[in-house]
C-alpha cells in the first residue's frame, strides 16, 4: 500500500458543472447552475454561478464570500473548511466513509442488509450529549447514503450519492439527494454534476480565485 504520490496518482484539483435544485419547507423552490472548482493546494472552493444570476461563491478557511463583478457583496463565517468536503474526499479517494475516520466519530458497528453494508458511527463520548450517531451505507463498495441523527435518535437529515462518474481515476457521484427534516417540514435538495475534470493544469486563476479584500 503505497501513498498516492509515490505511485504517481496525486489528485490535486477538480472541476465539474453542477445543478442544484431545492424545495424549501414553505413550498418555494430554487435552481442554481454553474461550475465548481476545488484545488487542494490553494484550499479554495469556488462556485462560478451562471444562474439565477452571474456571481461567484468563494469558500476559503471558514469564510464564505459572495462576489459580483469582482466585488464582495456579502460574507459570513461558516462552520466548514474546503478540505472537509466531498471534493477533498473524492480527490483523496476517501469518499467511502465521508471523511468520518478522521473526525471525532468512531466506528461502532457494521451490518449487512441486502445490497447495503451499513456502518454506524458514534461521536466521541464527550460529544454524545450534543451529537447523535451517523449511519453510512455502501452499495457495491461505494458510498450510497448517510443518515444523521440527534442525540435523542431523531433522524434529521439523509443524503444519497448515486450514478458515479469517473475522470482520471477519481470516482464522483453524479447525483446527490438530500432530505432535511426541519421543525417546519421537509426540505429536499438534488445536486447533479457533469463534465468532471480532474487535475486540469489550465485556468489556474479559476481555482485560485480572488477579489479585492480576500487574501
Amino acid at each position: 500500500m503505497l501513498p498516492n504520490f509515490l505511485i504517481g496518482q496525486h489528485y490535486f484539483r477538480m472541476q465539474a458543472e453542477f445543478t442544484i435544485k431545492e424545495k424549501f419547507t414553505d413550498g418555494k423552490m430554487a435552481l442554481t447552475m454553474g461550475t465548481v472548482y476545488y484545488d487542494r493546494t490553494y484550499k479554495k472552493l469556488v462556485y462560478d454561478i451562471s444562474f439565477p444570476e452571474k456571481e461567484t461563491w468563494l469558500i476559503v478557511d471558514t469564510m464564505f464570500y459572495k462576489i459580483v463583478d469582482k466585488k464582495i457583496v456579502s460574507k459570513m463565517a461558516i462552520p466548514m473548511l474546503p478540505n472537509s468536503t466531498i471534493y477533498e474526499f473524492a480527490l483523496m479517494n476517501n469518499l467511502d466513509n465521508f471523511g468520518l475516520e478522521n473526525s471525532f466519530y468512531t466506528l461502532d458497528k457494521v451490518e449487512k442488509d441486502g445490497e447495503l453494508v451499513i456502518a454506524s458511527w458514534m461521536p466521541d463520548k464527550k460529544m454524545q450529549k450534543a451529537l447523535g450517531k451517523i449511519l453510512v451505507s455502501k452499495k457495491n463498495n461505494k458510498l450510497f447514503g448517510i443518515a444523521f441523527y440527534t442525540p435523542a435518535n431523531e433522524l434529521i437529515k439523509k443524503q444519497f450519492f448515486k450514478e458515479y462518474i469517473r475522470s482520471s481515476g477519481v470516482a464522483f457521484p453524479a447525483e446527490t439527494t438530500e432530505l432535511l427534516y426541519k421543525k417546519s417540514g421537509k426540505e429536499t435538495r438534488v445536486t447533479t454534476y457533469k463534465n468532471l475534470v480532474v487535475n486540469n493544469i489550465k485556468n489556474d486563476a479559476l481555482y485560485n480565485f480572488t477579489a479585492p479584500g480576500i487574501r
Binding site: 430554487a30 472537509s84 444523521f148
Partner: peptide, 18 residues
C-alpha cells in the same frame, strides 16, 4: 431568486444543522 447557501454547503461536508 436565491439559493439557501448554508443548505447547499451542508450537502458537501459535515452538517451545520443538527
Amino acid at each position: 431568486n436565491s439559493s439557501d447557501i448554508l443548505g447547499v454547503l451542508s450537502t458537501l461536508g459535515e452538517p451545520p444543522f443538527g
